[in-house]
Design a protein around this nucleic acid. Structure first.
Length: 459
RNA sequence: GAGAUAUUAGCUCAGUUGGUUAGAGCGUCGGAUUGUGGUUCCGAAGGUCGUGGGUUCGACCCCCAUAUAUCUCCCCA
């Protein structure tokens, strides 16, 4: 049979894994520096934990796992009844009761609720694991992809927002990704916008349309708003507000004036202002780009309630490389009320694609063994193994060709593997208790003692 | 969930308006070179033309279905 892998999934070659780990390690170091702790949750959750948390569209994209034992004759009637429900588009626990993780935030909320008595709040955790979505794959969009989340729960302070902004800046600075733009907004401003437009209950529809502003332009947004039944007067009010420009402070001041009648909008402005002030104190001067207030930023997830952010790069045509926000009552879904959280997510698969396209990975990531010993067979093989053992004891990454085949072949192998040095333990070397070291870059070769080889390779 | 384009050797791609044995470069393998790689030279292997049906005297080419990739809508990281 012809081997294949499921749609939207990928193998990662040794070189790719090294590069991905470079990203993971960079982020991990930053998270730890900011006092976040690692967490891992299972690949599958109970379906009931996930359903209804991501909107109708989200529910449709959850990978469901078929129950085992569906062929059990004793349960045939129950299973047939359950299957009827499935045919009607509903889930039934007799057919499926588990599903693959759809994101890391809901499992995190579930974990916090289950372990609330053991945790010290505010609880700061980071999590880097794969998630699965039954979406149609496209460029930069997979059915299995890794999320990398960093959240704080149990604190209302906007210092958290500022710190997360710092983490974004620090990460993209260290990964050297150019053209980074961070946009920031508040769900409260969007709610205020709906109020000012005279349609406070239509916030979701307004924001979904508004989110497409940089893609389809104001004209397209207008069309969509009309389609969604927003009044002409409302649309004019929205246009007036989103056309506000200037520095962040100029925008915030203007928003304050234009939306003075909306309590919630004023609250949103105040929160943005405070978050940015904390950020200014914490931020490093070297970080590129600034953070721009953008009232048209929406973010899809329906659990955000406060500040929201999104990170993009204009260096490569690609969707966002990160996003996040504050959600006031996430754990409320699982019965723990009054716990506020705020978090960000890194789209590491997209970050990888961007870095690959721009050639941003350090070249030295590729190296494996530093030295390979040729296998001369017989007594020389024994001698080679002894030398190999000595090298490894000194912490030098080394390997010996396992078969005593033609030297030509062994050399070609080392060359292809990009191993920088080759050792030749042959008759003459063994008799003298020495070894010949060949530098593959220069082609230079010298007969040395094992001790000399070790100090040379360690340097 | 809807629409569009593509799929020929391990990889990147030619090709045939439907007509015997389907081509190249790179890679792989063998040899020149069994104590010397990366260069060079010589040679070889490798394809049911994505898969399954249909039309036809005859299909890699036309039609239908299906899988995968890419793009648009939708949604999202």
């Amino acid at each position: 049979m012809k081997p294949s892998i499921p749609q939207g999934t990928r193998d990662f070659s040794p070189a790719e894994v090294r590069k991905r780990q470079y990203i993971f390690n960079t982020l991990k170091t930053i998270f730890e520096t900011y006092g976040f702790q690692p967490l891992e949750t299972p690949s599958m959750e109970n379906l009931s934990t996930l359903m209804g948390k991501y909107g109708d569209e989200g529910d449709r994209l959850i990978f469901k796992i078929l129950n085992n034992g569906l062929d059990n004759p004793d349960k045939e009637e129950k299973i047939r009844a359950g299957f009827e429900k499935v045919l009607e588009g509903k889930n039934h626990t007799d057919i499926t009761e588990r599903a693959l993780r759809y994101d890391l935030t809901i499992p995190f909320a579930r974990y916090v609720v289950m372990h609330q008595n053991e945790l010290a709040f505010p609880f700061r955790r980071y999590q880097m694991q794969p998630v699965w979505r039954a979406d149609r794959p496209q460029r930069g969009r997979y059915r299995e992809f890794w999320q990398c989340d960093c959240d704080v729960v149990g604190s209302n302070s906007l210092i958290n927002e500022a710190e997360l902004l710092c983490i974004y800046q620090s990460a993209f600075h260290q990964l050297k990704i150019p053209g980074i733009a961070i946009r920031i907004n508040s769900r409260k401003l969007l709610a205020g916008l709906a109020e000012v437009a005279g349609m406070p209950d239509r916030m979701m529809e307004i924001t979904i349309a508004l989110d497409k502003l940089d893609k389809i332009g104001w004209e397209g947004v207008t069309k969509e708003l009309v389609q969604r039944g927003i009044s002409e007067q409302g649309i004019r009010a929205i246009e007036e507000i989103i056309s506000i420009s200037g520095t962040n402070e100029e925008k915030l001041t203007a928003l304050e004036q234009r939306m003075a009648g909306s309590e919630i909008a004023l609250q949103g402005v105040a929160e943005l202002r405070e978050s940015l002030a904390y950020y200014a104190t914490l931020a490093a001067a070297a970080w590129q780009g600034n953070i721009a207030v953008d009232i048209s930023l929406a973010r899809g997830l329906n659990y955000y309630t406060g500040v929201i952010v999104e990170v993009t790069t204009d260096a490569v045509k690609m969707g966002s490389v990160g996003g996040g926000g504050r959600y006031d009552d996430l754990t409320g879904l699982f019965g723990l009320k009054g716990l506020s959280g705020v978090g960000i997510s890194f789209g590491i698969d997209r970050i990888y694609d961007v870095m690959e396209e721009l050639n941003l990975f350090p070249p030295q990531l590729e190296t494996g063994s530093k030295v390979m010993l040729l296998n001369f067979g017989g007594e020389n093989e024994q001698y080679g193994l002894t030398v190999l053992h000595n090298l490894r004891e000194q912490g030098i990454a080394a390997e010996m060709y396992p078969d005593a085949v033609k030297f030509d072949r062994q050399m070609k192998y080392a060359n292809k593997r990009n191993i920088p040095f080759v050792l030749l333990p042959g008759d003459e070397e063994r008799e003298k208790q020495r070894v010949s070291l060949k530098n593959f870059t220069t082609g230079e070769q010298k007969m040395l003692s094992v001790q000399e080889v070790i100090s040379l390779l360690k340097a």
